[in-house]
Simulated assay, not measured.
Amino acid sequence: MKIKVCAGSNCTLLGSMNILDQIDDLKDIISEDADNYSDEILEVEVIKCLGYCKNTNKKVAPVVVIDEEPMFNATSQAVMEKIVNKIRKQN
């Protein structure tokens, strides 16, 4: 799974670095709980600016892109839920 976290000034000001920290913590949890999560690797990339704020008049920061699907006004909780739902093993 490819995850891009915007580190532009707006996104950073509105919490993208906190989201990045939460993703790092989640990676540790997943690696310790192989029974409940698939072995999919989380590829996390910090991008200087994804450019979404420049292309709209709406407030969209912070922006996180998961497998090419952008999340606007992203929160740590929403990002974690999306990642977990994609990689949790179905019983």
Rank of each mutant, 00 (worst) to 15 (best):
L20A: 14
D24S: 15
D24C: 07
D25E: 06
D21M: 05
E45I: 05
D21F: 04
S38I: 04
K54H: 08
L42I: 11
L42S: 00
K54L: 05
Y37C: 03
E43R: 15
I29N: 09
Y37W: 07
Q22G: 13
V46T: 10
D35H: 11
C49Q: 14
I47H: 01
D39S: 04
N36T: 15
N36Y: 09
N36S: 11
I41K: 11
G51D: 06
L42Y: 01
C53F: 14
E45T: 10
L42Q: 01
A34S: 13
K27L: 03
Q22L: 05
Y52F: 12
Q22Y: 09
S31E: 02
E40T: 00
C53S: 13
Y52R: 06
I29P: 08
D24E: 10
I30D: 00
I23W: 02
Q22K: 13
Y37R: 05
N55A: 11
D39Y: 07
K48A: 08
E43D: 14
D35I: 10
C53Y: 08
E40N: 07
N55P: 02
V44T: 07
Y37G: 11
E45H: 06
I29H: 13
Y37D: 04
A34W: 15
S31A: 04
Y52N: 14
S31P: 00
I41N: 06
K27W: 03
V46Q: 09
I29E: 02
S31L: 06
I47V: 15
C49T: 15
I41S: 00
I41P: 00
D21E: 13
L50F: 10
E45A: 05
V44D: 03
V44P: 01
L50R: 12
D28T: 01
D25T: 05
S38P: 03
V44K: 03
D35A: 12
C49F: 05
E32A: 03
E40H: 06
K48F: 12
K27M: 14
K27V: 06
I47K: 02
I30H: 03
D33N: 15
D21Y: 01
N36I: 10
I47D: 08
L26R: 04
D24P: 04
L42F: 01
K54D: 04
V46P: 02
N36D: 15
V44M: 07
I30P: 05
E40M: 03
L50Y: 06
K27E: 05
D39M: 12
D24H: 04
D35S: 15
Q22C: 13
Q22M: 09
N36P: 03
K48V: 13
Q22E: 11
C49H: 15
E40G: 00
I41E: 13
I19D: 10
I47W: 01
I23N: 12
C53N: 11
C53E: 09
L26E: 01
G51K: 06
C49S: 09
E32K: 12
I41V: 10
C49D: 15
E43N: 07
E40F: 03
S38Y: 02
D35Y: 12
D39R: 04
K54F: 01
L20S: 11
V44F: 13
Y37I: 13
I19F: 14
C49G: 09
S38A: 08
D33V: 11
Y37L: 08
I23K: 01
